[in-house]
Design a protein around this nucleic acid. Sequence first.
DNA 1: CTTCGGCTGACGG
DNA 2: CTAACGCCGTCAGCCGAAG
Length: 360
Amino acid sequence: MQRIILHVDLDYFFAQCEELRNPSLKGKPVVVCVYSGRSEDSGAVSTANYEARKLGIKSGIPIAFAKRSASPETVFLPVDFDFYSEKSEQVMEVLRSFADVFEQASVDEAYLDVSSKAKNFSGAKSLAEKIKSELKEKTGLTCSVGIASNKLVAKIASDFLKPSGLTMVEPRKEAEFLAPLKASRLLGIGKKTTERLENLGIKTIGDLANASPSVLTDEFGRNWTDYFKQSALGIDESPLEPFREAQQISRITTLKQDSNEISFIAPVLDFLSEEIIESAKAEQLFFRTISITAITSKLETHTKSKTFEQPTQSLELLKSTARELMQNFLSQNPELKLRRVGARISNFSKKENQKTLAEF
DNA sequence: CTTCGGCTGACGG
DNA sequence: CTAACGCCGTCAGCCGAAG
């Protein structure tokens, strides 16, 4: 069955939201930042608009680093996630109305299966243009759209021409479209894997398609090799998932100063625990596993966890367990100081005391 | 043998 | 002068223990 999938990606989403709220920002470099609160400029850049990107400012770099390459009119703003979420909901509502099957992939991305609404690829292109104009009209936001026969290629296509782009890859043209692109465009190929592939002389997706399977298997194993080979040819049967359930809820924060004292860290974990329980209750989730994360001064990550028999929603249990796990970790690693600490719940069930069939 | 718990590491928005 | 560095979430893979 030939599918027609659209991937819609909002352009420089957080920064575009800020431009929408304050139109005088338009035309200036805008940098949306996550401040850690530890010193004036500590933190990282979340999103930069295209004017800022021209200056070399992009997601993930330290704020202090971004300020060095900023121009005098560059505007730095703190993230306002509540505002972006609100806009995101408006956007998703519009997009959903155009789809036979809809999957929100993140706060600023969605997949639309329009197989029966569009009939053919030429119809899908008209539909995509309609989506772009209606989205702009109803929410004020621009987006880039990719059209293809599956999610994998649609996502790469939406990224091909930005901002405000529209890229269509017709059926049977997938491998040809992908071949010249960098291997890192495929999902799951990040910094580390790119380096390992380059050591094998593989730079582009085309190189990957032509690579010897046995060489790939030696380096990455069967599972990855199969996935790489299929992806490089643009083959992807994965269905849209309209109702993805959360697997975990976590909160993490940067300490005001590095520390290994439980008396300093425990109140921080308590605060994170309260936020986590609030989310869990909002989604009516009961959890069995509690974890803590400890990130050292040298940015090494450690996690510890504990699983309980009965699902729970108890704030007190979360607080006491998180504290106990952290206390144990600190005693076992007295030489370490922590920069960031986090807490997490997972292993969800919808209800407390869920009975198994055998109990009836 | 499979499943579960615990943990690490890679990745991405 | 250099180095600088958030937060939230998913998944694969490994290990050892338990079933």
